[in-house]
């Protein structure tokens, strides 16, 4: 852990963890054809709820079970994370209900919930701001942590990071290696055809919107109980939900590419703070803070405008096909549309 480069990279993985989790939740939801635009608000609301639940759980464990604060921390964080997941799932269910059952615009409801989530979190959570709560500390994974370089970067993290790895792999497995995943993708790509095959389209959309929302809630807990442990007003993670939404597009709705996108973003953020700390370089800090957003526009520009495709055509032919497979970025064909039995 002495090498500064390795510890920087390990820090990037730590910082990227909530982004990875949030983007993975949204990937699941969008693959089923529903846009959960409320990410920014859901994350803040579930971060607050997760913190409050974990904090209260810790107090109860200390007073009634006679535990010390560090002893109670692990269990209370788990309880808090579950609370956060429930909140995330409830917000997502509201979107599913209004778009599937009430036929309202997903974007409209999602946007309102973005604002409402943040305001509700600030209003309900004022009394819990800036108090020390439970948080989990990094634990080395046996064996894996001893692998040189890789082990130091990826396996000397906290539980949330390990959950994020499992989540990415599990999502990929679900999508591409299971029958359920085939139905999930069919519902997002060609709901009519799926329905004709006997797949209950709207029921699955409800299910995966709630599941994705629960995962987004877990991302909220990963902020308030791990990375920037604690809860503050104004919320420190504000804005990250939008970045997670952009990462899903950048990642082409594929779990591994979404993971890479989240690490890239976190990496560039940490690069910006390194530049800022480097003596001899005089850059106004606000310009560096603008970098992720400029980057967001540029990446979306690359994937949306067909610029990538033109770039590919310049390359030698044998390279084109595999690269196109990797860089392909088509949204699920029925994303954001309503499905009704005719």
């Amino acid at each position: 852990m002495s090498d500064p480069l390795i510890s920087t990279l390990a820090g990037i993985v730590t910082n990227a963890t909530p982004l990875v989790i949030a983007a993975m939740g949204e990937t699941i939801t969008e693959r089923a054809g529903i846009v959960n635009l409320s990410l920014d608000g859901s994350i803040v609301l579930s971060a607050m709820s997760g913190f409050v639940v974990a904090y209260s759980a810790q107090q109860i464990l200390i007073t009634s079970a006679g535990m010390t604060a560090p002893e109670a921390a692990g269990l209370s964080v788990i309880i808090g994370a579950i609370g956060a997941m429930v909140v995330g799932a409830l917000v997502a269910l509201l979107i599913a209900f209004s778009s599937i059952s009430l036929r309202q615009d997903q974007v409209a409801v999602g946007f309102v919930l973005t604002l409402l989530g943040t305001d509700l979190a600030v209003f309900l959570g004022t009394n819990y701001a800036r108090i020390p709560g439970p948080q989990i500390l990094p634990t080395d994974l046996p064996l894996l942590a001893n692998i040189p370089v890789i082990g130091e970067i990826f396996f000397q993290q906290s539980g949330f990071a390990y959950v994020s790895y499992l989540l990415v792999f599990g999502t990929w497995w679900l999508f591409f290696r299971t029958r359920q995943g085939l139905s999930l993708r069919a519902v997002g790509e060609r709901p009519e055809a799926a329905f004709a095959r006997g797949i209950p389209v709207n029921r699955l959309r409800y299910l995966y919107t709630a599941l994705g929302g629960a995962v987004v809630g877990l991302a909220g807990a990963a902020y308030s109980l791990n990375v920037r442990a604690g809860w503050t007003v104004p919320p420190a993670m504000g804005g990250d939900g939008w970045i997670a939404l952009a990462i899903v597009i950048f990642g082409g709705w594929h779990p591994f590419r979404v993971l890479i996108g989240a690490y890239l973003f976190a990496g560039l953020r940490s690069l910006a703070s390194v530049i800022q700390r480097t003596p001899g370089i005089e850059i106004n800090i606000t310009l560096l803070n603008a970098a992720p957003w400029v980057l967001m526009i540029i990446t979306l520009l690359l994937v949306s405008s067909g610029a990538l495709e033109r770039l590919l055509q310049v390359l030698p032919r044998p390279l084109q096909k595999p690269l196109r497979g990797i860089l392909r970025s088509d949204p699920p064909a029925a994303l954001g549309t309503r499905f009704e039995r005719k």
Binding site: L37, W242, A290, W293, M296, L300, S304
Partner: peptide
């Protein structure tokens, strides 16, 4: 002209305006 969804373009430009 460039196919960037106006929601994301708008969100990013909001933040950039605040930083400006």
């Amino acid at each position: 002209r460039l196919g960037v969804n106006e929601i994301f373009g708008g969100v990013a430009l909001n933040q950039i305006a605040n930083l400006a």
